[in-house]
Computed example of a mutant assay.
Amino acid sequence: MAQTWTLPRWLGITMMSFAAVGIAAGGFGLGVLTTSHPVANSGGGSAPSPSGDGAIANPVASPFAVGSTLPTGRVVDSLAGKPTALARGSRATIVMGMASWCLYCGYEDRWVLPAIAKEPGVAVDIVDLSPQGGIADPGPETPPFSGHDGEGGPLDTAGMEAVMRQYLAAYRGLPGIHVYVAPAAIRQAWAVQGFPTLAIANTQGRVVQVVPGAVLPAALRQAVAAAERR
Rank of each mutant, 00 (worst) to 15 (best):
F145Q: 13
A223L: 04
G133S: 14
G27H: 15
I13T: 13
T4S: 09
G153V: 03
A227G: 00
V210I: 08
A117Y: 02
A24L: 12
Q166H: 10
R230S: 05
I56M: 09
Q3I: 09
R229E: 04
L86V: 09
A40Y: 15
V163N: 04
V124W: 02
N41W: 10
S146T: 14
Q3W: 10
P8W: 13
L129D: 00
N41G: 09
T6Q: 12
A65H: 05
V112H: 04
A169F: 14
G121V: 01
D137I: 13
M98Y: 05
Y107W: 11
P48R: 00
V215K: 01
D53R: 03
D137C: 06
G159M: 14
R74S: 08
G194A: 14
A40R: 06
A117E: 06
V210G: 03
A65T: 15
A47D: 10
A19L: 09
T203N: 06
L79E: 09
V181C: 02
G89S: 00
T69R: 08
P48C: 02
L168K: 02
Y171A: 04
P131E: 09
A123R: 12
N58F: 12
T35W: 15
P38H: 07
S49P: 08
I186Q: 11
L103I: 07
A24E: 14
A115Y: 05
R230W: 08
Q188F: 00
T84R: 05
G81V: 01
L70G: 06
V210M: 07
P83V: 01
V181E: 00
S78C: 03
A158F: 11
H148T: 01
Y167H: 12
A170D: 05
A99H: 08
G134W: 05
T84M: 10
L11S: 14
F145H: 12
Q209F: 11
T69N: 14
A123V: 08
Y107A: 03
N58P: 00
G22H: 11
L79G: 04
A87Q: 15
R230V: 05
A225K: 01
E141A: 12
I94H: 02
I23R: 10
V163M: 03
V224Q: 14
V192A: 02
G153Q: 15
S62P: 06
S17V: 09
V179I: 08
S36F: 12
Y167I: 09
F195D: 07
T35E: 12
H148S: 11
M1P: 07
A115W: 13
S49G: 08
Q193R: 10
R9P: 14
